[in-house]
Amino acid sequence: MWAAIIVAGAGCYLLKLAGLSVPDQVLERPFVRRLADLIPVALLAALVAVQALSTRQELTVDARLVGLAAGAVALLARAPFLVVVIVAALTTALIRLP
């Protein structure tokens, strides 16, 4: 675990430093700019799916999906980040009450 933390820490720092140090021309390329826009979109979407619908190597539908839907409703209502997260957690917790 510590090795992964060190790799992520050093890597994320170098990515930031590279941005401040590289000349503008690289970003001028439309493909680079588009890819940079799309990488977070694709990764975050995959993370939402995996986090809500899988348990290790199985696809599972459970209370998490209802919580996520409640979070989506909060987002539609333009709720701030923390409210969205709390709504999702509370909804899921309430469904799981014995």
């Binding site: 977070p40 975050l44 939402v48 209370a63 998490r64 987002l75 969205v84 997260v85 899921t92 799981r96």
Partner: peptide, 20 residues
């Protein structure tokens, strides 16, 4: 899981994704 924190993580990613 008792507190729905697993769903909170999914919702956090969704909230980060939403404006994009």
């Amino acid at each position: 899981a008792t507190y729905g924190l697993d769903a909170a993580v999914a919702a956090a990613f969704l909230a980060l994704l939403w404006p994009q």
